[in-house]
Design a binder for these strands. Structure first.
Ligand SMILES: [Mn+2]
Ligand SMILES: [Mn+2]
Ligand SMILES: [Mn+2]
Ligand SMILES: [Mn+2]
Lengths: 221, 221
DNA sequence: AAAAATATTTAGACTAACCTAAATCAAGGC
DNA sequence: GCCTTGATTTAGGTTAGTCTAAATATTTTT
């Protein structure tokens, strides 16, 4: 069956929103996410339903079918593998890779994906710390929590960012933080959830709650 | 300005046909090449003309404008660089790269092309021996001639193939021939232009005129 | 439980990119 | 110079994917 880039983007959007919170995804939420009008979304939902990629009932919201889920995971897999390629092989910065991967994720070739995966050494995470599904759609669950929610001082590893926007990525890059860095959390303010970190090279960094929410960390023993 | 993948394919087709023989390209030739109806071609020619990518006058055929030419060369550049990537880095066979490059050539990012070029070591030729335009659109002119037209026995280097179809590429691969190989031309038959080669490892190969027309060689001193 | 507010779908329209059938143009033969 | 033929364009129609405005369904408020 033929699936267009546009259809793939809808499927990916439904997947992303379903990850964000359980249950059916509403027309309006998709409309907001894709920057299309609700009427256009309804239109497309009918077509995706026709193709058995989603479960759709009028006024009841939408969820991925098994087939739609497999498709979504494969697109995410391609997107993240290409991001690794762009970062590790072509030396793009981590704030530059997303937009290009947004195009590359739609290239159709099983063989290409599988060779790219091998070429990159079967990476488990992309440049933002997001897990990369393997060829069977399985991905590492990382148990990272937001810095702003850390409740015990101590040593942590920066595992993932949840905001992929340029301004955010540039900001934390300028602070000298990146995925994999070890930091000591010295304080998470009980009132406003801002926090104070010490980096491996001795620098002290202050982060707002807003920034802290988008940086996920794993505890080090 | 926005240029769609479809428009890019038309521009590339006009470019290819203009290379094949000088002068204006006819609607019917484009129709044949793109496997679209002549009426559809006329439709598109109007739009490309609107965008100043071609010179078009009703019933008079079409040619690329300076802008269209630059665009065409850039697409060809991307196509061939991706083919090199697929062959050299991902170890695809030379008959597998074209179809994937057909998709990759439409990815939009100046920076990506330039980094890919560097990553590949600024290659001058693609896996089929076709020259790769540099960032300014300049490409090596190779003076290779078809095997079937060789008029002097002697040593030659296989420089390029002009048929990119799977069956042809598989055929000559099975004969043990590839780009860069040195061969001795022992005879080109005056009657049917079939020829007899000796490879570096001592094998003797017979080629029909049809095959010989699609293998270009350069003379070795 | 009715009214008000909000979410969603339907109706109708548009553009890009294709198609078929019909009309028109251009070229070569006589 | 006219006629036939093949090339090209025009006319009118289709589908995917978008939109706005209007209608309808659902949810929240009173
Ligand atoms: Mn991304
Ligand atoms: Mn996408
Ligand atoms: Mn090719
Ligand atoms: Mn193409």
């Amino acid at each position: 069956m033929q699936i267009s880039d546009t259809e793939e983007n809808y499927i990916k959007a439904i997947f992303a929103l379903q990850m964000q919170e359980q249950g059916e995804v509403s027309t309006n939420r998709l409309s907001g996410h894709l920057l299309n009008r609700a009427a256009s979304v309804t239109d497309m939902l009918k077509r995706l339903s026709e193709k058995k990629l989603i479960h759709y009932e009028k006024y009841k919201g939408v969820s991925l079918s098994a087939k739609g889920y497999r498709l979504a995971v494969n697109i995410v897999r391609k997107h993240r593998l290409w991001e690794v390629f762009l970062k590790e092989k072509l030396h793009f910065k981590w704030d530059e890779v997303h937009d290009i991967a947004e195009q590359l994720e739609h290239i159709q070739s099983e063989e290409l994906v599988s060779r790219l995966d091998k070429y990159l050494g079967y990476p488990k995470f992309d440049p933002h710390g997001d897990p990369i599904p393997d060829k069977d759609g399985l991905m590492q669950k990382n148990q990272a929590i937001a810095l702003a929610r850390v409740d015990r001082k101590g040593n942590y590893r920066i595992a993932r960012v949840t905001d992929h926007s340029r301004p955010f990525l540039n900001y934390i890059t300028e602070l000298g933080l990146k995925i994999g860095d070890l930091v000591r959390v010295e304080e998470v303010n009980a009132y406003d959830a801002s926090c104070k970190l010490k980096t491996a090279d001795g620098q002290t960094i202050f982060l707002s709650q807003k920034a802290g929410t988008n940086i996920l960390v794993e505890q080090r023993r």
